[in-house]
Design a binder for these strands. Structure first.
Lengths: 144, 144
DNA sequence: ATACCTGCAAAGTCTTTGCCTTAGG
DNA sequence: CCTAAGGCAAAGACTTTGCAGGTAT
């Protein structure tokens, strides 16, 4: 089981296998997502210095769409107006702690206690492709 | 501990205590939220036959805002473009199972396994007013 | 060569606000 | 009577798409 952060080549290989072309924008997007380990919005990505210089926001948007289709990234809600995107890393699951005041998002280190329930739900309800999102919201120490 | 669904008078009393005026729109909004036990979007509420006849969408929006401020309802993400709103019922916590294909949302009956972790996070991180949202996503049997 | 990708600009969708009028307490 | 609440319409915020031209394979 691969627990550690993949490098961008791993992800780009996966992209190519899924039928995506290796464009400059795709490479840069993947690297940007890998650099930050918490989810990012479309705006954050499109305005990131590296990406802003080489492609349009619409391109980032369409890349994200394709990567979601291919199961390489996931779109998260996270309680904000804008959607967040995060790489799906095999063998890893992330839950988040979010400050409702300043909007800070940090991944939670502790083990996720939900997997048993997830299996139970899969069995009882007949839902397929089950996954979950768990977010904690509160006021962070700086905002208190 | 009050586990059962309150009636609209209970909620309206709470509203009045919080300083809200008892308007027709507020009464109707509360009743509409109580009728459906899963979260609703602004559009669903504003277009609901009962509410559509007596008030404008902006009114519903502003009522929802005030009710959130007063801690009477909560805004949820739920992975859709639109925000969802749900009454906060004392002593009750809801997690959701959401079909990524048809968008169906159903509350989960099983006990939520997250409360212990929530306490641990509160202690370790110093976050205040902590609460969480847990959603399961998958393809429902009808959509499979 | 050709199917996929991109930029630009415009259109959508949902939310939020301003301003003036109405009505609860 | 005085201030919160409501209606209407316009502006914002974020996302999504059409089309013409560019590029990886």
């Amino acid at each position: 089981m691969q627990q550690n952060k993949p490098n961008s080549e791993d992800v780009l290989t996966q992209c190519k296998k899924s039928g995506l072309r290796r464009t400059k924008a795709l490479q840069c997007l993947v690297e940007t997502l890998l650099t930050k380990d918490s989810p990012m919005t479309l705006a954050e990505l499109a305005e990131h210095p590296d990406l802003a210089d080489i492609c349009d926001r619409a391109t980032v948007f369409r890349l994200l769409q394709r990567l979601i289709e291919k199961g390489i990234i996931r779109r998260l809600g996270l309680h904000e107006r804008a959607a967040y995107f995060t790489l799906l890393i095999p063998g890893r699951h992330q839950d988040f702690l979010i400050c409702t005041s300043c909007g800070d998002i940090e991944p939670i280190k502790a083990a996720c206690p939900v997997h048993a329930l997830e299996k139970e739900i899969a069995t009882k309800t007949g839902y397929a492709n089950l996954y979950h999102e768990l977010e904690f919201f509160g006021t962070c120490p700086q905002c208190c």
